[in-house]
Computed example of a mutant assay.
Amino acid sequence: MRLLATALVAALASAPALAAPAYWTDWTSTSSVASAVIGDLTVGSTTVGVTFSGAYSFAQTSGGTNYWASNPAIYTSSTVDNGPTTADIVALSAGGTKTITFSQSVHNPLIGLVSWNSNTVDFGVPINILSYGAGYWGNGTPILNSTGTGFFGNGEVHGVIELIGDYTSITFTDTSEGWHGFTVGVLGVIVPGNGTHIPEPASLALLGGALGALAMVRRKR
């Protein structure tokens, strides 16, 4: 049992991070008065309101062309298990400052990208480029800027980036082009009052499985 326990702990320590389910925004309505797009993120039993404010070209809130579906694999990675599953998207054309606001704090929010072609974007906070590849409008490579807070789209960038930290709002700048689209996702949200994240991280699920295996071996003995 001690040898098995040691082996399991070593395996957990050396194993790469497991991809976790991503929860993507259901964009539900627009407001021409406030130049806003409004939606919800549902994570387990928690619903988080999401509001985009700023200049935009169009928003798909119910149907339309599914720009995410041409190559779903480019929206997955060792961190993110799944890309957007509906056609919901917010399309930007005029460059400037935009803000995404959450009704409660979210952890390491995700931005799904469609066609960020020759675009310079900066979020002002550290980002990770999780995945990219050939999408609906072609192929491109996001080039991280010198501060690690944004990227330049070298070609038709499709993929997913992650903002590191906990946020109730995200403000970013972009540059003008025909249009480039995005949506917002999360791997978890912050539980008010105790600062914990839901749902359960994949690493804890792996640990639970390992402990379960130990218990089964002990019962068998």
Rank of each mutant, 00 (worst) to 15 (best):
Y167P: 11
R218Y: 01
A55I: 03
W137L: 10
V186C: 04
A11V: 14
Y67A: 06
A55H: 04
T171S: 14
A22E: 09
R219W: 08
I127V: 09
V189P: 07
G39C: 09
V125N: 07
L41Y: 10
V48M: 01
I164H: 01
H107M: 01
A13G: 09
G133Q: 04
A36H: 04
G124T: 05
E177D: 11
M1R: 00
V43R: 02
N128F: 05
I38K: 15
L163K: 03
G178F: 14
S105K: 14
G185M: 07
T99A: 00
G133I: 02
A210I: 03
D166K: 09
S118K: 08
E177A: 09
Y75S: 00
G209M: 08
A59D: 11
L187D: 08
I89R: 06
W179T: 11
V37S: 11
G39S: 06
V157N: 04
I170L: 11
I190D: 09
N128G: 04
N154S: 15
W137K: 11
K220V: 10
D26Q: 09
I100V: 15
M1K: 00
T97L: 12
V80C: 04
T76K: 00
T6A: 14
A91P: 07
L206T: 13
S45A: 14
R2P: 07
V114D: 15
K220Y: 14
S131R: 00
A19W: 07
T28I: 12
S53D: 11
G95E: 05
N139G: 10
